[in-house]
Design a binder for these strands. Structure first.
Lengths: 252, 252
DNA sequence: GCATGTTTTGCCCGTTCATGCAAGAAACAG
DNA sequence: CTGTTTCTTGCATGAACGGGCAAAACATGC
């Protein structure tokens, strides 16, 4: 039984059943579970499946949920980031919040007794805020983009143009000291630019994997950021670059 | 049974039924209730559902009422109504859908392979539609009203004015043969009127308790309704009144 | 054929993770 | 207010995990 042969069978079985179990594969292939675990580890590294305790599940296309599941560590890390980001808020402020899982975590981290006015084009953020009695919520409508979980387009831009905010929580982007804040989608970037233009300060909370990466569309320069919320393990050199541009860095 | 697998099944069931019960899931999965509770807690932490006493409901505006209040009969009845309402749809049509639990049930009942363009001011309806790959979703933004679960105001009206639809699913209102369709809120009624004006036909699906009741604000006359979807147990006399005004009555 | 280096595999061990159970707290129903 | 159900927390147990190691299988060069 060749290694490559096993890999192909695992892929097939995953596509057919939607999951595989390490123990089951071991007995089916006649190899030890350690070998199967190694196979799964390699396939996961290549992005062909997602490793979970006890086996593996498909990655990507099968993850139909808009708030696609991330690893447990990522969830907790984002929650920590969110708490630190919320600490920047003052009662009575008005905010723009756009899309991304980190921004959704921030929305969930807002305490119930905080009075705010929030405008968002993210359905996830909006849903999280509907529970909060003291938050005045303004939904920025438009054409909904499933991949982003947000609304974009001319309608969205028109709605943003009529509003102003103290802070703008800018999410799910690439962040690079020279290229600044960048987005993966043209229409998305346009909305972000409009929000940035109409707010007094920009807040960005990112996990380490987003630091020092860049996407095609430019949103704002690094010096436009007022607050940057990062993990404690973020590389100090990168942070120093941002700080030299006047960015205030906060640790989760 | 993989933990991840249970999580996916819980998400699916929640999307299909609008609720899950801890005990029921435990026996279905063959695990202890503690494990199910842990699953629900994790999913709630990730923002994928909202935990309530006895089980969980979808996150966002669905969750306003505790589980006890959403009686089993009402959920099942609304699901039946929803199926009958969806039968009125044709591929490629464009729709307005406004708020209300019945309209949310209708949104959830739309099959995955149906191609539609849907504009809605209800966050609950929008959330339900984000899963559907062939639905072009337009979110009608504006000031969010927690009690209604919908957006209203001038922004909403402006967005509606730019659109047209084949059918308008008008929800959560009073219905009376002489006073017609009525709403509880002034701004809400205004949005409903705008949607009615820009659509070719109005569809109303109601449970029996909404028949022959009226609210302060008038939306449309009884003869403006094209399709009325009701329970099998709806009083025949009332239905005959509507039919004499040219309303097509459909039973769930 | 023989020696050598590489890859694969199985085993061991300390660690992490999922699960069920028990006890106390909280929420609901009557 | 009282009893019951459900929930959370802590804990113990067994399964799954990753890393290290050595043997086996394989490839390569002489």
């Amino acid at each position: 039984m060749l290694t490559e042969e096993r890999h192909q069978l695992i892929r097939d079985r995953l596509a057919a059943d939607g999951k595989v179990l390490a123990g089951e594969l071991a007995s089916r292939f006649g190899v030890s579970e350690d070998t199967v675990r190694r196979d799964l580890r390699e396939l996961a590294k290549a992005g062909q499946l997602r490793r979970v305790y006890g086996g593996a599940v498909p990655s990507g296309p099968f993850a139909a949920a808009p708030l696609s599941q991330r690893s447990r560590h990522a969830v907790e890390e984002k929650t920590r980031l969110a708490r630190a980001a919320v600490a920047l808020l003052g009662t009575g402020q008005s905010l723009f919040i756009d899309g991304g899982t980190t921004n959704e975590a921030i929305a969930r981290a807002i305490p119930r007794d905080m009075e705010l006015t929030v405008a968002t084009n993210s359905l996830g953020v909006a849903s999280a805020l509907t529970d909060l009695p003291l938050v005045e919520l303004i939904v920025l409508g438009g054409r909904y983009v499933p991949d982003l979980g947000t609304c974009v387009g001319t309608d969205t831009l028109a709605a943003v143009a009529q509003l102003g905010a103290d802070l703008f929580f800018l999410g799910s982007c690439g962040l690079d000291i020279t290229r600044g804040v960048t987005a993966f989608d043209s229409a998305e970037a346009e909305v972000k630019r409009a929000m940035a233009k109409n707010s007094a300060g920009i807040v960005i909370a990112v996990t380490n994997d987003k630091l020092a990466t860049a996407a095609p569309y430019r949103v704002a320069g690094a010096d436009a950021i007022r607050h940057l919320v990062v993990e404690r393990t973020a590389p100090a050199a990168t942070l120093a670059d941002f700080q030299s541009r006047g960015v205030q860095v906060h640790f989760a």
